[in-house]
């Protein structure tokens, strides 16, 4: 099976029913995408497929034809962080960090669809992503900061 991940084509030997999450983690060795619930309730497994956020834990690998972006594909080749990643660093958002790949994926998709989101827009777009450390206030601030930076760029 072939998957286009972070600009590379990967050839993976997997069961077609295997969720994309496990194909990425256990077969392709890309562990930045996390397992949280397995039933699309927490958002830890979010990836982008053609720019749209998808819950990889309930997405069979055989159903994926588009370009997959995972957290490992966020930074530029030279290591420069994406605007969202940099806002996360500047705002010191992460605590344990486990949910943050999914949070940044959701935030990136939000900013692409809506370059200047209001608090209500952030509530709508981000409420599917659970964080048990309670980083929500800093996530909100970081999304606003990233929006500002992207608008100025």
């Amino acid at each position: 099976m072939e998957l286009k991940v972070n600009g590379k084509t990967l050839s993976l030997d997997t069961d077609p029913d295997m969720p994309l999450l496990w194909a990425l983690r256990d077969v392709a060795g890309l562990t930045g995408t996390k397992f949280g619930c397995g039933i699309a309730q927490c958002g830890a497994c979010a990836v982008l497929i053609d720019g749209e956020p998808v819950r990889s834990c309930v997405t069979p690998v055989s159903s994926v034809s588009g370009e997959i972006t995972t957290i490992e594909g966020f930074a530029a080749e030279d290591g420069t962080l994406s605007a969202v990643q940099q806002a996360w660093v500047d705002g010191q958002v992460a605590q344990c960090g486990y949910c943050q790949s999914g949070q940044m994926l959701a935030a990136t998709a939000l900013l692409k669809a809506n370059p200047s989101p209001t608090d209500a827009d952030i509530d709508d777009a981000m409420s599917g992503n659970m964080c048990r450390c309670g980083t929500y206030p800093r996530i909100r601030a970081a999304i606003h900061a990233a929006a500002k930076k992207l608008a100025g760029a």
């Binding site: 890309l30 562990t31 962080l81 996360w88 010191q92 958002v93």
Partner: peptide, 19 residues
């Protein structure tokens, strides 16, 4: 207040959790 030493790894998916 100090920037966290592990923050860049954590926003890059490079932190090794047990899993």
């Amino acid at each position: 207040t100090q920037p966290k030493l592990d923050i860049v790894a954590k926003v890059s998916g490079k932190t090794t959790f047990g899993i």
